[in-house]
């Protein structure tokens, strides 16, 4: 079974519903506070905030229905109904490592003065090395893992830089 195929629990749905209600209400308030161009003779149906206000209101209303539904489900089956133990197929530590590397690359290595090719080579090398490290050590081939990671990093950085700069004429960050 795929990790994404477990149903959401009433608790998760309820918390999500509260977030939608709050977000929808915030949109309504911000839409209400928008300029109405009274000096230019604007009528209510041309107010800039009319449409987003309706969208926000609908979002809050659907959030309310979702909240009521999850309360009903929680009463009949419990707040954690549908939550399953998926520790056999998912690894939170891998997620934290992967997400961390993604954000470090996109926010810190790109467009902050480091040459694009160098940042890309560092990111890909680190990603490949760290995600293959456990298996490589178990296989007794840690040194080969470093070489593979370096080759992947170097090749990706070179290919992406050449293709985007020379072929697509993009000035990379």
């Amino acid at each position: 079974m795929n990790a994404g195929s477990y149903p959401a629990s009433p608790r998760a749905d309820f918390l999500g519903a509260l977030a939608w209600i709050a977000f929808g209400a915030l949109i309504v308030v911000m839409s209400w506070q928008m300029d109405r161009f009274a000096a230019q003779g604007a009528t209510p149906h041309t107010y800039p905030g009319l449409w987003p206000g309706l969208v926000g209101g609908m979002l809050a209303a659907l959030g309310g229905i979702l909240a009521l539904r999850s309360l009903g489900r929680a009463r009949s089956a419990g707040w954690q109904a549908g939550e399953s133990d998926d520790t056999e197929i998912v690894a939170p530590s891998r997620f934290a490592l992967g997400a961390g590397l993604f954000f470090v690359y996109a926010l810190l290595l790109v467009g902050r003065g480091l040459p694009f090719w160098l940042g890309t080579a560092l990111f890909v090398t680190a990603f490949v090395f760290l995600f293959q490290r456990a298996q490589r050590i178990a296989d007794g081939r840690a040194a080969r893992g470093i070489v593979v990671a370096l080759v992947c990093g170097g090749a990706t950085a070179a290919a992406v830089t050449v293709v985007f700069e020379q072929l697509f004429l993009v000035r990379l960050p």
């Binding site: 790109v110 890909v124 990603f127 490949v128 995600f131 985007f164 697509f168 990379l172 960050p173």
Partner: peptide, 19 residues
């Protein structure tokens, strides 16, 4: 292995969005 494909795709996501 996905450990090789994933970072390459992410680089393309970043550079593609920027381009």
């Amino acid at each position: 292995p996905k450990s090789i494909i994933i970072p390459i795709i992410f680089v393309l996501c970043v550079v593609g969005s920027y381009a």
